[in-house]
Design a protein around this nucleic acid. Sequence first.
RNA 1: GCAGGAGUGGCGGAAUGGCAGACGCAUCAGACUCAAAAUCUGACGUAGGUGACUACGUGUGGGUUCAAGUCCCAUCUCCUGCACCA
Length: 805
Amino acid sequence: MAEAFNHLEVEEKWRKKWEERPVNVNDGKKPKYYCLDMFPYPSAAGLHVGHWRGYVISDVWSRYKMMNGGHYVIHPMGWDAFGLPAENYAIKTGQHPSISTAENVKSIRSQVKQIGAIYDWDMELNTTDPAFYKWTQWIFVKMFEHGLAYEKEMPLNWCPSCKAVLANEEVVDGKCERCHSEVTKKNLRQWMLKITAYADRLLEGLDGLDWPEKVKKMQTEWIGRSYGAEVDFPVDGLDEKLTVYTTRPDTLYGATFMVMAPEHEMVPLLTKPEQKEAVEKYCADAANKSNVDRVQNKDKTGVFTGSYAINPLNGEKIPIWLSDYVLADYGTGAIMCVPAHDDRDFEFAKKFGLPIVQVIAKDGKEIPDMQEAYTDAVGTVINSGDWNGMESSALKMEAPSIIEKRGMGKKTVNYKLRDWVFSRQRYWGEPIPIVHCEKCGAVAVPEDQLPVLLPNVESYQPTDTGESPLAAIDSWVNTTCPKCGGPAKRETNTMPQWAGSSWYFLRYVDVHNDKELVNKEIAAKDLPVDMYIGGVEHAVLHLLYSRFYTKFLYDIGVVSFEEPFKKLFNQGMILGPKGVKMSKSLGNVVSPDDMIREYGCDSLRMYELFIGPPQQDASWDDRGIDGVYRFLNKFWNMVLANLENDVQPDEELLRIRNNMIHDITQRLNSFSLNTVVSGFMEYNNTLSEKTRQGGVDKETLKTAVTLLAPFAPHIAEELWERLGGTASVFEQSWPVADESARAVSVLEIAVQVNGKVRTTVTVPADCDKDAAIAAAKEALGDKLPANIIKEIYVPGRIVNLVAKP
RNA sequence: GCAGGAGUGGCGGAAUGGCAGACGCAUCAGACUCAAAAUCUGACGUAGGUGACUACGUGUGGGUUCAAGUCCCAUCUCCUGCACCA
């Protein structure tokens, strides 16, 4: 009886051996491959099997790249450790966040080590480490010096529960992303990053990236570039003009009214005395409306200002209204309304009885009694003076220039992307390295004084005045101006959690450098990231911010590339058993720890892959892991059963071996990792059968073990050793299939009559059509139909005889 | 509303236009065992037939093709993202 597979012993043994003698080393000669995981937040809850999935995928890929192509693989791990949970814990317990964070890092690190991945722990980093956040602050200073970081007093999303300002991105359906409280507005001085200055480059850079189309599209829509024109409408009776932004200047003749946002600065100017009361009431209501109401209640409301504008093209007087469906901070905060060709304007016109003038013919006609807007820009232009008879789609392109030439406005590009609200009124984040001096204004802390260390405070509680807890530490706040030496106060806001994660991937490769963010030579050699693996939840924010930072660092000469992540892979989420998200409150969180004890790391790794296509969500099923556990045991027994054999490979064994190399490699290359696992199972079934029939040769076994190594590294190393392999299986280069050995002499093909399979027949592999048809007819025997009108032969696949009924 | 993605056995899923359901889970039967677990062998889409077999079958309705889960048109459902951006 062969020795049973003891996963605990085998895994323990190789874990130690790899620690003594790492398999992934940089000898300076190998080509590099940088495979990055999205680094985790070290939460107290620890890892669940869902976190594991991405890490397993990236480790399999890293090990494969190491063996195939002989790469030195940069595969680091770190901690995105600033953030609210640590701070909230501090508020509750009084324990400093750095202590709870360190504890969490310690326990998560040991969990991550269970994966058996080839992480290089010398590169480990932590965003809360002053040696790291020195450079997070340094980047901010550089942005400040380049005019990309600026202060602005503005109404901001305020979460009354978290007592913090939220970025637009943190507001979901008008509610706080974290606590789901309704978000209100509050006027505060904020630090902003001018990401909009990079809008075009962020958009255009997407083209060359090997990213999922879905993610590129999401970023494209987030940036939301549109082309159109700003058009000036003179105000009747005043020496003023109201400027609007439109993407449809071709419909300008159809503008029958205008609408301004209630916050528009010209509202008081344009309000006539008789409308004053109504307008003021409307504006007050709008200001009090929560985001939820404004977003969810799409019924149109509005009020007339009493003023009229002049349509610059036809001189017609059109009324100016106010409505909260017009956004104050997009375009000019005012629009021209063409109800015939815009759904929202149509709804508004119907509700308030405003005229509707069709300017694009639908199917060549004017619609007699419009029931809905005709929004396509397809058709002949009508009711439009000198534009009549033009094709609307062509006019749409030309109109901005025409308007510009006539002095009525100008061509304009607009973006949905807004500048990034970068300050947070919280404790547990990087202090913004700015000093406010009465004489000099905002002054950056000089580089040699970085990092600005986060001081200890007594109370971590955020204040409802909107000030950070740091503001309470007088000794820290009061300082001297680096420029003039006079009295000055430190900035008390901190950075958002995104700050560290926007550039951490650049730091891993030179993590101990205290002179530079990253050494130029090292960066040139080791960066950028070749493969980035993580959840799709970071499709927009983290990835957009990272691209923005990288482009900025490129501009100031820190790195030599503009795009940080060449290839991106989004793994699907692991859901709880009933297809619902795993969460502590639902009590359906599956911990990897018990699984590893019972089945071993290799089994869990393979099951994480076997559970389904890696990019697709999957429901965890505890029983499913039995399948891969049994497979590994069978594979172990199969190899051990052949250890004493001295079998020479026959043609069939050679074919099996080479088919196995071919199939596994192909599936791996196409990232079909679930079918790689099923492929191993199939080949193991075949090899087990061969074992019973007389044995399997050593070379085939070694090949199988080598192919399995990236997936189940521990058992593969152990079997490699027992097969007499030298060094580590990971020092083997990836097997290459011998195509000639895969060839077969005969094969079985299906025989169809009228597309239905009737029988099968074995034919020589190189058999021609006539011979195949003849063999098929013979195999059919008395089922051969009489009136055959067509004969089809697909080599190696099928014969189809088409007969008249 | 708009944009993407997905609908295949009891379940997870597999299938360059060419024998649908590989591989695995669960289930059932058998072997081993005093017994159980583990392990091994076999069955396992639905309906009909003792049977070799026959018919039907990839959300629904059409179409293209010798041949459709796969391509085209329409339609339903679910998931994800965006959502008054003029």
